[in-house]
């Protein structure tokens, strides 16, 4: 799913790592998930996903109010359990922890960022689409 900057409304593609530094256009650090129509019905792996209902989702929904370093991504109604494993954590600018297993296995990248006010970016990656193509 693409991301949309909540300030300048610019849209960024799936898994665009440019937003790791905030919005490349205006510097803002909050994004919305924007539902991509073309993805509809193609997600056989996640039967409990309801694309129509999803529409826009605040990244803040993924925030929890735990202490840095111990956070867990908040469960939301239409996200399958398996997708909520954090794959990248930003402890401070320049210090990163990667969950290689999650990166390798999951179809989405979940980033927890601890700089500039904490927020979590849930990045659907390109992995899944490519894997499907292979089958």
């Amino acid at each position: 799913m693409p991301h949309k900057c909540t300030r300048c409304e610019k849209i960024f593609k799936d898994g665009d790592i440019a937003i790791l530094d905030g919005c490349p256009n205006c510097g803002w650090n909050k994004f919305l998930f924007v539902h991509d129509e073309s993805e509809e019905g193609d997600d056989a792996k996640s039967p409990d996903k309801q694309p129509g209902k999803k529409g826009l989702k605040e990244i803040d929904e993924f925030l929890s109010d735990q202490e840095p370093g111990t956070e867990e991504i908040t469960k939301t109604e239409d996200e399958p359990e398996q997708d909520r494993i954090e794959s990248l954590r930003i402890n401070e600018p320049g210090s990163y922890e990667l969950n290689l297993e999650a990166l390798l296995e999951r179809k989405e990248i979940i980033m927890a960022m601890k700089e500039d006010g904490k927020y979590v970016v849930h990045l659907p990656s390109v992995f899944d689409a490519k894997k499907k193509k292979k089958k």
Binding site: I17, L20, D21, L88, P93, G94, Y96, L98, L100, L103, L104, I109, S125, V126, F127, K130, K131, K134
Partner: peptide, 15 residues
Amino acid sequence: KEATEGIIEAVKWLD
């Protein structure tokens, strides 16, 4: 930061 992005890129290439 580049190295971290690079790891994600490396993983994507696997597909």
